[in-house]
Amino acid sequence: MSGAARALACAVLITAFGNGLYLAGAVLFLTRSVGLSGTDVGIGLTMAGVTGLGAGPVVGHLADRFGAREIYLLTLTAEALATGSLVLVHSFAVFVVVAAAVGVAEQGSRAVRGALIARIGGDTRARLRGYLRSVTNIGVALGAAGAGLAIRSDTRTAYSALILVDAASFLLTALVIARIPRQSPLPRPERRTMRRGRLDLPFLAVTAVYGLLSLQYAVLTVALPLWIVSHTRAPAWLVSPLLLTNTLLVVMLQVRAGRRVDSIADGITITRRAAVLLALSCLLFCVSGAGSAVFAASVLTLAVIVHTLGEICHAAGEFELSFALAPDHAQGRYQGIFGMGTGVFIAAAPALLSVVCIDRGPAGWVLLAGVLLTAGLGIGPIARWAQRRAVHLVDA
């Protein structure tokens, strides 16, 4: 691994640690210290997420023109300022404004980071991104564990400290990123080729496929806890070890899965495998509701393992195709478009899965399995369409 890649991994670990603090303590800070209701927080975060979605392609385009490292330093600074401003929130209106700023900065950073990974990783960029995903899981887990001290204290001072440390993590990350050599923007190809970035229907179709598959990310964080308490006899405390199992498996296996994906054909194959595994896990979740507590716990454990393997395969395929089907000179913009497209589905997933899997019960899990399976198995012709489009435009 190159020095730049090691520096990026260090930066990602720092940011992930801060995010772990934020994820564990932000909602409690806003409800128990600021005094907002849970509904207010949910609405505000949703509005912020939607606001931030459009930032990815715009900021990614700036990275393509002026350099990913330079724009990344700006977005990290913006994230630090926006996140730190949360401690000044005293009303719902102010919270929405600050949360929107956080969302815009976060989505912008995500797109620029994708462009930086593409430049630093070169031919092994998908593998590097898989490694960084493992690093991210480690950092978030450590941050969430550290947040336990503040949560136990349950004071405004403690919660504010979590927010401010998270803000400081972005500044520390910026210092690390500044040590990476400047990545000069790649020259633009012919004008006709540039049309592809404006309306690239095949790439948008690939984005839609992975958007549908991204519904799976809310299965463990949203659907699983609700399913356990409302439809099974398993104890509620089982949620924690199941989520820990997911995290550990991702840390151990994501890099290994990425090593086997070096081409568009490999990306298609592993995405199909992901669809089969994710659909099977949905059926296992469905079955877990029909039995004793021991039966439910056993089936849920198996379901989470199968789901995590599908999640790992999904991520490996996504990393390869999102990079390989984007022009090198416009990686920032294309990563922003890809993030925006999948982000729409991720934002809608909690509400959608609550209605489909929890309200509808077993039938909802079967429906979700069908959606995931259909999307994943359909990636082949869509990805090859995008590949042909790319070759045609470059040769035009």
Rank of each mutant, 00 (worst) to 15 (best):
P350W: 10
S91N: 10
L224F: 06
H231W: 12
G361P: 05
T245F: 04
R272L: 12
A111Q: 08
A16F: 05
L373A: 11
Y210R: 05
N137I: 00
D64T: 09
A218T: 05
A324P: 03
A383S: 14
A386D: 00
T77E: 01
V209L: 15
G67T: 04
S281M: 08
H231E: 12
A290T: 11
L213Q: 09
P327N: 07
A178L: 05
R125C: 08
V94Y: 14
A348V: 14
F319P: 00
R119D: 15
H231Q: 15
P241F: 00
D262S: 09
L224K: 03
V222F: 11
L238W: 00
A351W: 12
V306A: 07
V229G: 05
A99Y: 02
G35Y: 08
M194H: 05
L21W: 00
G60N: 07
L175Q: 14
R129G: 03
A150Q: 02
G361F: 01
F203I: 00
L249N: 07
I43F: 15
V299T: 13
G378C: 11
R233H: 11
Y334S: 03
V287F: 08
L377E: 04
A236I: 00
I270E: 05
V239L: 09
H61W: 07
A347I: 13
L171V: 05
V41M: 08
L368S: 08
S281I: 09
R196S: 03
A99S: 09
V94R: 13
A223Y: 03
V97G: 06
R156W: 07
G291W: 05
L28A: 09
G121T: 04
T157E: 15
S160T: 15
D64P: 00
S230E: 12
R192K: 05
V96N: 15
M194R: 13
L172C: 14
L175S: 15
A100H: 15
H61Y: 05
V251F: 12
A82H: 07
A390M: 14
I71A: 02
V344N: 05
A257M: 14
H307C: 01
A158V: 10
I177F: 02
G35N: 11
Y72H: 14
T124C: 00
S214E: 09
P187S: 11
S33G: 02
D262W: 02
L309V: 11
T51W: 02
E79Y: 10
L220D: 03
F95G: 01
S153E: 04
V135W: 14
S281Q: 06
T124L: 01
H90A: 15
V50T: 08
V12L: 07
F29Q: 01
G291T: 06
V304S: 14
A99M: 13
G332E: 06
F92E: 08
L277C: 08
W385I: 03
G49N: 09
V112H: 05
P181I: 03
L373C: 12
V34Y: 01
G310S: 04
S91D: 10
L171G: 09
P181G: 07
S160E: 14
S184M: 09
L284M: 13
